[in-house]
Amino acid sequence: MIVSEQKPFGQIFDFVRDYNNILVLGCGTCMTVCMAGGENEVGVLSRQLKLAARHNNLNMNIDELTITRQCDREFFDENATEKINRSDVVLSLGCGVGVQYIVELFPEVIVRPGVNTRFYGANISQGLWLERCAGCGECVLDQYEGICPIARCAKSLMNGPCGGSADGMCEVDTENTECAGQLIYERFKNLNKLDELLEIKPPKNWSAGRDGGPGRIAREDMMFDE
């Protein structure tokens, strides 16, 4: 899933303090699961904003709504459309995709991001999310037995580990981040195929991801004639 974390409240409040009608719009999918922008967070943030407005003697009407997904047209139903059109500013707790998609659908509305979109990750344990994919566009997990050096090595080393790994941890964050190169090494060792690590991985084709320009997937088999 896409993992985000809420922006500092001060920044959020500065985004909306000059508006009267504010809609705090949550997202029911990734943002709910990573607990950054689901229905609960929308409720808490709205109450915080109301308190701050009162404290600052501001006249702010704060409305709340959480839709299933902010990245899909079908979830912007009549109710959502009405609430969005009625607001001066939408504080989106969707990821960066959601924020932009609202702007595309409602060009006349001002939208502000309430979360920082961080990475594609997994919920490893209660309250802990870790990055697992970099969306590079050309998956190499087959070559590394299911451990991604692109996303999980601070230097994206395809022929790692570098000389800075100690006690299995990455030198960039020795407390919290495991060395991807070491994990790959251990996995290959357990699978009795260490000799395969001798193969020199050539430079990666980065153009399949962000470096090739904004991504686009067009599936003609799924398109309707308009």
Partner: peptide, 24 residues
Amino acid sequence: LTGDHQSFGNHPDAKNVFDIDSLQ
């Protein structure tokens, strides 16, 4: 060399490149 990660230096906010690694 691959080089020390930029977080250790005086421009920790820099975009890292690592287009290729030292072996490549």
